[in-house]
Amino acid sequence: MPSDVDFKFLPAVFGRGWLAHAKAFYVADLLGMEDKIRADLFNAIHVERRNLNSEDALARFFADYGVNEDDFRKQYDSFAVNSRLSQADAKIRAYGARGVPGIIVNGKYLVSAESANGNENIFKVVDFLIEKERQK
């Protein structure tokens, strides 16, 4: 992304099965390792098809990255994680997102595979909208 663009990940919880992964995202963030673990966690879930749908499984996954299981568990059900989940859910609902992937540009535009006519076009549309916002 260009230097004047601030890109932030926001985990969506569109079903009960998504909750554990969203919590893991915020635990990683609170432990200062979100950038280190995000891609590996995504690949473990979506490419390797590992069953990481429980607190126990996620605690073991984080342990592979040097996180003490007790430290992971303290964060997993913490007020901080639950607050961030609530805030993310409110934003996602406000944006009208109904699936992933989805990218919000400048709090105004929701770009999804459907609106961009396919996953391969999402970033083309995002780039166009970024440029449009720069011109304002």
Rank of each mutant, 00 (worst) to 15 (best):
M1W: 11
M1P: 09
P2W: 09
D6F: 09
K8M: 13
F9R: 13
F9W: 15
P11F: 03
A12R: 04
V13K: 05
F14D: 04
R16N: 10
G17I: 03
L19K: 08
L19C: 01
A20M: 05
H21E: 00
K23E: 05
K23H: 01
A24P: 04
A24H: 05
A24W: 01
V27H: 05
A28P: 03
G32A: 12
I37R: 06
D40G: 11
D40T: 10
L41T: 04
L41I: 05
H46D: 06
V47K: 15
V47G: 09
R49P: 01
R49F: 08
R50A: 11
N53M: 06
N53V: 08
S54H: 08
E55C: 13
A57E: 13
R60Y: 05
N68W: 00
D70S: 11
D71H: 07
F72D: 00
F72V: 03
R73W: 03
K74H: 10
K74T: 09
Q75N: 13
F79V: 12
A80H: 03
R84P: 05
L85Y: 04
S86K: 15
G99N: 07
P101R: 09
G102S: 13
G102V: 06
K108M: 07
Y109T: 03
Y109A: 02
A113I: 01
A113M: 02
A116D: 04
A116N: 01
N117V: 02
E120G: 06
E120S: 14
N121L: 06
V126P: 01
D127A: 15
L129G: 01
L129D: 02
K132Q: 12
Q135E: 10
K136A: 12
